[in-house]
Design a protein around this nucleic acid. Structure first.
Lengths: 135, 135, 135, 135
DNA sequence: GTGGTCTAGACCACA
DNA sequence: GTGGTCTAGACCACC
């Protein structure tokens, strides 16, 4: 309630919820939007906010900890691990985005849609997101 | 037999193989790249070419038949069903592409990458596909 | 039932079961006792044999997959990932053992037990294990 | 104040800190290294020195007091309880060490390391502790 | 208050 | 048959 919950989740998506959380957090740290030392919402708090089982959130946090992105502090809530002070270089963030764009390009090509139209649509979506912040 | 296999498959992808096949074919018919009456590779042939379990190919064909996109001809290989002579209107094809672009836009935003750079990369990918034709 | 279950688990231990499994498998692969391509017992089978919840086994397998030691094959049981053909060099296996020995040495020192006696006891334990194969 | 702090703590370890403290003290009393009447550092002092939450130290002291190993003196710092004048018999100290050695032996066996090498490494560690005195 | 572990059971997706 | 995901709920350990 104090800090607004920064996560969004699409329960109907084929992508499992815990993975949506993992990737969202990865991206936000890469962007520097979340920085080292910052506290995460507690498992229970986030689970409540997302109307999701606490174990699902816990699984996401656990994976991120194994990955070194989060740090556990016994008895306290988790924080972004040190060593994530600054956003990644744009180049590296682009690398994270690339697979999705590769896929988009492949689909567009198979659909036979001319590049200009694809770019135009993407531009519009980048400027005003359709829905709040879907993952 | 003498038609080159037009399908590509990413076995490591989280997306199930049968679905990759289904959507690929849907897009190619939508684009008018494949038209009514055109013969598809046989289940065994395609499975062999893609190094995939024949049941997987069979499932994809089955779904497409149920959808009305393919037609089974006893003893012969499947063909694209009649009624798919012409490509869909661009507008409808765009609608098929949109979800992927929505997702790309959301990721780009979370990564904090400026729109121009995203568009630039996509443009490059549209012009010069990286790897053959990954789905 | 076919292949004997190679795992042992101490349910009363403070070390969580899933972690016992993870480390056991890591060691056995390091030792070359389990090699690339080898099939693991299925989640349900192992869970049954160990009288443990399937999710617990699944969690262990999942972590090992994330680590690259196991590979998932859709619809089939998991296998040891390629690239684990040969046992690790003795030196590397020693490195895996070292933390436990460091700890043992520290405890012995704090207890004021003379080195010869510690070594003697360990030797006896190495030759004839007390209990079957406790983790 | 003028006694050097004899405790070491590994904050990253899975073993809870309070337990590290408890067992360390138990071993040192068993060894006769610390004897009845000897003063312990105050909770605040020790907590400060170890960079640990005072409640953690307090919990350790509390457990040791309940166990009869420490004695609280109103307003003064705690001392080792009387009745701990002499070190335990070697046999009893060995029993305290045994579980750790059993575990080490099991790991070594699973790693397929020959006994001589294990013993050699342990010997080296007993003679020349690696790092100060890790628990 | 925090996170972690485990269970029992349901349901899905893939081959 | 395989593994994966999620839920609801219990219990533990740490601070």
């Amino acid at each position: 309630m104090d800090t607004p919950i920064q996560f969004v989740v699409a329960p109907g998506s084929p992508e499992p919820i815990y993975r949506q959380l993992v990737e969202q957090l990865r991206r936000r740290v890469a962007a520097g939007q979340w920085v080292a030392g910052q506290e995460l919402p507690s498992v229970r708090e986030l689970a409540l906010a997302l109307a999701v089982n606490p174990m699902t959130v816990s699984k996401a946090y656990g994976l991120l900890e194994a990955e070194g992105l989060l740090q556990r502090r016994r008895g306290l809530s988790m924080v972004i691990a040190p060593g994530h002070r600054k956003p990644l270089a744009t180049r590296e963030r682009m690398d994270q985005l690339r697979p999705t764009l590769v896929r988009a390009a492949a689909e567009a090509r198979q659909l036979g849609i001319p590049p200009e139209q694809v770019l135009q649509l993407l531009q519009r979506l980048l400027e005003r997101p359709e829905t709040g912040d879907p993952t």
